[in-house]
Design a protein around this nucleic acid. Structure first.
Length: 302
DNA sequence: AGCGAGCCCTGCGCGC
DNA sequence: TGCGCGCAGGGCTCGC
């Protein structure tokens, strides 16, 4: 369940279960889910077995679980859900189809449970990674105060719900981009956490065409777009994220409700909630762009 | 250096 | 009923 609100729902669900828990055993059912792990399957299993986890942290769509480590050698399990990943917390006898990796956890208060990493398409992954200091000295992400971030996440920008996200740096970089604004919203090195759904929803709310060159946006429109991004992400989070089917669920397997609140994404052929004209779907970056051709027109640069 | 295409995968729903 | 095609919420790497 890929975008920021869905990953945050997972992080928040995971936090109480993993914080202070020990990894009793590790089973890898499909080695392809370790594509990003810098070592063989056995290395992943050996290094995790017996380790204690300290927190569940998120930046953008990346999730990590810091591990109890020797001083000066901080490490974490880094997980990315890709297009179809789920993290499910289950009883010890529970089996989930398409489980690629399973961690069995022992928690001093909550007892034993299974953490099943489920991923149909295997675009997601788990890996052990070193934690390095953040360049700004601020916490690495949501859910943990340490100013550390996995090396695999260090090149990703902070997400717009992060208190340390720097609006002015974002606007400055935006002003130097000649590509379409949607491409910028999806570029995780500029702003993280936004995917296809929330890009389309934010652009609809801000009445901006997805191909409008980023640099051509006035500062006021850029500001308004960032505000809409934050509003859409916050609302989606409050509704538990967007679920179209049983594939996108929280750690207990429950769906979110934001799919009922979508104005543009997946609404092609239906009337625009603002003007009543039909929402269109264009092919863009090998995926769909959903927008209202009347409300979201290309504009001359200002 | 920035940008766009291609690729990594599986499974579902639709139209023929 | 069966099959092929297009579609799906992401990100990395490689050419130009």
């Amino acid at each position: 369940m890929p975008e920021l609100p869905e990953v945050e729902v997972v992080r928040a669900g995971l936090a109480p279960a993993v914080t202070g828990a020990r990894i009793a055993s590790v089973t890898v059912f499909d080695e392809r889910s370790l594509r990003r792990h810098p070592g063989p399957l056995g290395d992943f299993v050996e290094r995790l077995t017996g380790r204690r986890m300290l927190a569940a942290v998120r930046r953008g769509k990346f999730l990590w679980l810091p591990l109890e480590s020797l001083p000066g050698e901080p490490e974490a399990i880094v997980a990315h859900l890709g297009m179809s990943g789920q993290v499910l917390l289950r009883a010890m006898d529970a089996v989930d189809p398409l489980t690629r990796i399973r961690l069995e956890l022992t928690h001093p208060q909550h007892g034993d449970l299974r953490l099943n990493f489920v991923d149909q398409r295997i675009f997601g992954s788990m890996a052990i990674d070193d934690l390095v200091p953040t360049t700004d000295g601020e916490p690495g992400g949501a859910g943990y105060s340490a100013a550390l971030v996995p090396t695999k996440v260090a090149h990703i920008a902070r997400d717009p719900l992060d208190a340390a996200f720097d609006d002015s740096v974002f606007f400055a970089r935006l002003a130097r981009k000649n590509v379409g604004i949607k491409r910028v919203l999806l570029d995780q090195t500029l702003i993280s956490g936004i995917g296809n759904i929330y890009a389309d929803e934010s652009l609809w709310a801000a009445r901006i065409h997805y191909e409008q060159p980023a640099a051509s946006l006035s500062r006021a429109r850029a500001r308004s777009l960032l505000a809409e991004v934050r509003l859409v992400l916050t609302r989606a989070l409050a509704e538990g994220g967007t679920s179209f089917d049983a594939q996108y669920v929280n750690v207990n397997g429950a769906s979110g409700y934001f799919s009922h609140s979508l104005n543009a994404y997946g609404q092609h052929g239906k009337p625009c909630p603002r003007c009543g004209r039909n929402i269109r779907r264009d092919s863009f970056m090998n995926r769909g762009s959903h927008f209202c051709a009347f409300c979201q027109r290309m504009r001359a640069p200002r």
